[in-house]
Amino acid sequence: MTTLITILTRLASPPPQTLHTHQPTSSTVTYTVTTRPALTGLCAKLGFYVGISARVVLGMVAVLVVCLKWCVSLGIGISVLGAFWGEGGERGMRRIMKLIEITDGTYIIPLAILVLFLACKRNYKEESLTIISGLGLQTSTTSSFYLRSPSTRFISTTAIQDIFIHEAFKGFEVRFYLAVVVEGEREVVVVFPSMLPRRGILEEVWREGRKCLWEMGEKG
């Protein structure tokens, strides 16, 4: 019973968050919070790339099945499609087309959409804050799907009034968040809004971020 409770607790708990700091120049620093496991070993890297390859293959198969079902509905000949596979392709296409023909399209299309959805969906979250000394900061939230670009926003230094850590209730728990006060806006800009990392990560980003944004700019 204790083992079952432990397993359920691990499944219900959020994935661990990791902070990565990248400083390409002395005046630019990027803080990235991610739930993606670190690819430290050969097995981890191999598993990651195998997973990406499997997603691509599944997505292509789903699109191919829908296209073949569409060809069947239009009455396109098997010999025409089999020509793309060269010698022996017609025989293989005949079997595939026969299977697709007897399968109801009301099952194929929703299943293909589900496969494409799972193939394109990321299995991790990632958000970042880039600070350029004397210029401003940019927040970025990676999309939950691979084919969509991340959402970003740039705030110039002249518009930033303050950066602070605050707390708020989310459900029945207290969560801390890093906020940017922007001149002329009633609402603060929350950094890492979808992840809301733990207080230790926020304090490190807040302390180093303020130093890079203002102190380095004054020295320059």
Score class of each variant (00 low, 15 high):
Leu196Phe: 05
Asp104Trp: 12
Thr142Phe: 04
His20Trp: 03
Pro15Glu: 08
Val72Lys: 05
Ser149Gln: 02
Thr30Glu: 10
Arg153Met: 10
Asp162Pro: 01
Val190Gln: 08
Leu74Met: 13
Gly51Lys: 06
Thr35Glu: 05
Ile76Glu: 03
Glu90Ser: 14
His20Gln: 09
Thr25Met: 01
Ser13Pro: 00
Thr106His: 05
Phe169Ile: 12
Trp85Thr: 07
Gly88Gln: 07
Tyr177Leu: 10
Thr28Gln: 10
Ser151Glu: 14
Leu11Asp: 14
Ile108Gln: 07
Ser144Val: 08
Gly134Val: 10
Val56Arg: 12
Thr157Leu: 15
Gly59Gln: 02
Val181Ile: 14
Pro24Trp: 10
Thr25Glu: 04
Ile96Gly: 01
Ala54His: 02
Glu185Lys: 14
Leu135Gln: 14
Val66Tyr: 00
Val182Glu: 11
Val181Lys: 09
Glu87Phe: 15
Gly75Pro: 03
Pro24Gln: 12
Val63Thr: 10
Val190Phe: 05
Leu147Val: 11
Trp214Gly: 00
Met97Ala: 05
Glu218Ala: 11
Gly200Trp: 11
Asp104Gly: 05
Val66Phe: 00
Phe84Met: 14
Ile96Gln: 00
Thr103Lys: 03
Pro16Lys: 07
Leu118Cys: 15
His20Cys: 10
Gly88Trp: 13
Gly77Lys: 13
Glu87Gly: 09
Gly82Tyr: 11
Gly209Ala: 02
Gly47Gln: 06
Arg186Cys: 07
Gly200Cys: 08
Trp85Met: 15
Ala168Thr: 10
Arg210Asn: 04
Val205Gln: 06
Leu213Pro: 09
Lys170Gln: 08
Gly217Glu: 09
Leu135Ile: 15
Gly59Cys: 07
Ser143Pro: 03
Gly184Leu: 08
Thr32Pro: 02
Glu208Leu: 03
Ser156Asn: 06
Leu111Phe: 14
Leu74Val: 10
Thr139Ala: 09
Ile165Gln: 05
Val56Asp: 08
Val57Pro: 03
Ile78Ala: 15
Leu74Gly: 03
Arg199Thr: 11
Ser27Gly: 00
Pro14Asn: 00
Gln17Asp: 04
Val190Ser: 05
Trp70Ile: 01
Val174Asp: 09
Leu74Pro: 09
Thr2Asp: 06
Leu135Ala: 15
Glu90Trp: 13
Trp206Glu: 04
Thr106Cys: 04
Thr152Gly: 00
Arg199Asn: 10
Glu101Cys: 06
Thr157Trp: 10
Leu135Glu: 15
Gly51Ser: 09
